[in-house]
Design a protein around this nucleic acid. Structure first.
Lengths: 366, 366
DNA sequence: CTATATTGTGAGAACGTTCGCACAATTTCG
DNA sequence: CGAAATTGTGCGAACGTTCTCACAATATAG
């Protein structure tokens, strides 16, 4: 034990200075049990004079609680997660909890590592954007061991956990319906379509057609594809697989390539729907480099609102997800579970807002 | 002790199952001391069969180390901190460390609270964007108690801590020099100017003129003002205080108002320099709403690069701060200190890059 | 007034792991 | 070969706090 912190004040010294036992000093400072006012005052003064700082490791070892939430983000560099973290941090801070932050980069092996580390550090609960919806044994184990889990942004079938999401399918359907209502019959979609059956879009279309897909536990991008399909069907427009720009896992480059491909088609789409912030930024780059005028040459709707969408000229129509609210809701759920709430699992679907702006017009006459 | 985790496997059970003492089991699993290969194998198998997970609270209590870094961000929702966090997370993860994340909202009282909580949780080291450069007693106390501190984005005079920043003054001077070289004589600046002497710009100008300001420990926005002053002086252009848009603490609304004021001046600036991402986004909104053409009507340079700056038409010239590199550097510094490195305090000034793009032109003929 | 309940205190065990040390076995070096 | 060094094991103390329980003092209710 040679690497010890120097001059560390313990409760034993505080108790001696205040002339009471460590049990009494603990009660006075820790706010549990009973202790007289005068003793409380004396102990607190002694603590202050000595610069006492409780050791929360020791406390956690005894109480079995650390007042710490683990968070596994999909990509901490993304504005999406930054906003969610904002909500989580505000709610947990108000409750005196800390956040142990980890990053999965949307990879299951990093997620497994992160969950393991968080649990060894004895987190009281976990908020996680799961990177793989089919491999959740580690989350099941956490739950069985009494560590509450709240999923965020995506849900997992057959996992008894709370979840906070938005209704991607419906919001997407609404977006594409706005485009069909404006007269568009050729609407391109750029989306990360990887995490369903190896990214096989044709299979997905077939499965959807035969009613074999439960949209509620798909990854968001597939849900948004589903809503795109819904809206086209509503408008009596057949789905053209060539208009679906399939992007691989987390690839801005892939998004640029697919946008380029779509906009190079002989019978080019007259409108584009990009399915998340990364797709949107990449698509914007290509649209700009092709000198296309929005909305004259191409109407555009983006799922997820980014700051630039409001000050471009014209502004870009976007789905505004309530990200900090999602973070707040997830934090409240997990805190409630830590508090002993054993009610049924919650599946919150928060409502996104649609920001109209100016990027939708009738199709150009080609 | 009634709120106990159920079925928790401890090293005592692993040892019993492997037929060795807890000391041997600890050595085998913890990777310290000596133990024979066969015994190691037996113990590891027993641990695996039982689903043993070390309790890092107990370990930290004994070793005095938690393998956890505390981070106090200025605003976790900002892309700026998201990128820094990215760098920190990558480096700390590779070293088997966790991150305890807190948020100060650039307020000293939240910072004090955060540092207190982090220290009670026995962090091994701290990375912090200090919100107040004149009140650092809490950081001094941490350092004296053996908790290494690395400052990020801004430095504190007379605090024996490492720091990772960029040379804001020089980068700013370079930006404004590009505008003067293009012929601009009326260059507006929009910056958050609050945290120096109550935000008194006139006093600052006077203090700079009399050589009373040490720019190295100013807040970044004041350093950028300093660089603006440098460049104007270099070009023989007097500083016009009316061209300095002073924005209060963290106020997008203030930035919009000041940009509006600048662009409404009778003798309107022909170029604008915005001093950070929040200022830039707000300024862009006003420029757009005023129908000003960049760079024909107004040249623009932004300090800090945001994704939209590269896909606007024309692209916006910007200072690209190496944010993830800053995070990485800070993490490496703090890990090195935790490792026992007692070398002199480091003051790293990373080089930002200038992205030219297309928002600089000669002044319009008015 | 007596019995019961509540407030209050101190002693020592508990939490789950690592460390120091005594002792033993094996290897290395002169 | 013997002495010294290295490898290896188990015991029990340590870490800093909270908890339980026995006992004491005070308040409340019948």
């Amino acid at each position: 034990m040679n690497d010890k912190r120097q001059d560390k004040v313990t409760i034993t010294e505080v108790a001696k200075r205040a002339g009471v036992s460590t049990a009494t000093a603990g009660r006075a400072l820790g706010g549990y049990g009973y202790s007289r006012k005068e003793i409380k005052a004396r102990v607190k003064q002694a603590a202050e004079e000595l610069g006492y700082r409780p050791n929360l490791l020791a406390r956690g070892l005894i109480t079995g609680k650390t007042k710490t939430i683990g968070v596994v983000a999909g990509d901490i560099q993304s504005p999406f997660y930054a906003s969610i973290l904002r909500g989580v941090a505000d709610v947990t801070r108000a409750a005196g909890f800390g956040i142990l932050l980890t990053n999965s980069d949307e990879r299951i092996e990093l997620e497994l590592e992160a969950v393991q580390l968080l649990r060894e550090k004895q987190i009281d609960g976990l908020i996680i954007a799961p990177s793989d919806l089919s491999d959740s044994a580690h989350l099941q184990a956490a739950i069985l061991d009494g560590c509450p889990v709240v999923l965020i942004d995506r849900a997992i079938r057959n996992l008894a956990a709370d979840a906070v999401c938005v209704d991607n399918r419906e919001a997407s359907r609404d977006c594409v319906a706005r485009l069909t209502a404006a007269g568009h019959r050729r609407i391109g979609l750029v989306a990360e379509l990887e995490r369903w059956n190896g990214g096989n879009v044709a299979d997905f279309l077939a499965a959807v057609a035969s009613g074999r897909v439960d949209s509620s536990t798909l990854f968001p991008s597939w849900q948004r594809l589903y809503g795109y399909i819904d809206a086209l069907r509503d408008a009596g427009i057949p789905v053209d697989p060539d208009l679906i720009g399939r992007v691989g896992l987390y690839s801005g480059e892939g998004a640029r390539k697919e946008t380029q491909r779509l906009l190079d088609l002989p019978n080019r789409p007259t409108a584009l729907f990009s399915a998340d912030g990364l797709m949107s930024a990449a698509a914007m780059g290509i649209i700009t480099s092709l000198d296309l005028q929005i909305p004259r040459d191409l109407s555009l709707i983006c799922f997820d609102d980014l700051d630039w969408m409001s000050f471009l000229k014209p502004g870009i129509a976007a789905v505004v997800q309530p990200l900090t609210e999602m973070g707040e809701a997830a934090a409240r759920l997990v805190l409630s579970r830590i508090d002993g709430n054993e009610g049924p699992n919650q599946r919150l679907a928060l409502r996104p807002r649609f920001a109209e702006r100016g990027s939708i017009a009738a199709p150009p006459s080609l």
